[in-house]
Nucleic acid binder design. Sequence first.
DNA 1: ATTCCATGATCAG
DNA 2: TGATCCTGGAATC
Length: 273
Amino acid sequence: MPEGHTIHRLALDHRSRFEGERVRVSSPQGKFTGGAALIDGQVMTGAEAHGKHLFLGFGPDRWVHVHLGLFGKLGFGAAPAPPPTDTVRLRLANPSAYADLRGPTTCALITDAEKHAIHDRLGPDPLRPGDDGTRAWQRISRSRTTIAALLLDQKVIAGVGNVYRAEVLFRHHIDPYRAGRDLTRAEWDALWADLVFLMAEGVRHNRIDTVRPEHLPEAMGRPPRVDDHGGEVYVYRRAHMGCHICGSEIRTAGLAARNLFWCPGCQPGTGGG
DNA sequence: ATTCCATGATCAG
DNA sequence: TGATCCTGGAATC
């Protein structure tokens, strides 16, 4: 379930368990055996995230670059580590803890230069201290592409995925099909600030919650609700259900190869038509 | 037992 | 735009 908040959380989780310590590194599945051998027994010197990319540092000029893709998962446990199953791409272990990586799109050993190249091709990340939305605005304000597509473009802004895109556009009453260049600077500044807030909350709670307190079911006089993906949301995966605010039927459509969700009542516009 | 689907991204055409 | 890669849980037969 990886959007940017998940990856930043994973960087924290790696630091708390492994930073400054020697780590046994292996690839039970075999697809990273060569890389694992080169860092096995080295000290983990740091862990950081940029958007959906995770970087685990092992001494000068050596990083394990991990991208979970859609299916990847990292699972932590206390030592002793159980025998790994055959899908574990990467296992890290020290005397007190272990971490298993499965199903990533990327797990590769890279250099500082290669890491820099990745940072360079990513847009600003709402979760990276010091990043701000100005660079993203420069692209968005000149683009005829829909804001919904731009939010998923990691070159424009790094870390936003399908849930945050749908939810942040709902929270700001923006029709997902509006062209980037038709947004005002004030609208973009508000979107960016809200992503900074929402994604930091996501790191803290390790899940995506976007519903304002006054709109929670108990505050609205409705029975408590449980969304099947674990967080409280307004529109994501709520196609054909009633909007919590205005009651309109939530709509869905494919956009940028993903399922988009929005409320035609709260986010008025052409709706793509 | 089999198919479908997912909070991602790349590459070919 | 479509095919493809990665995994696992839910839905469907």
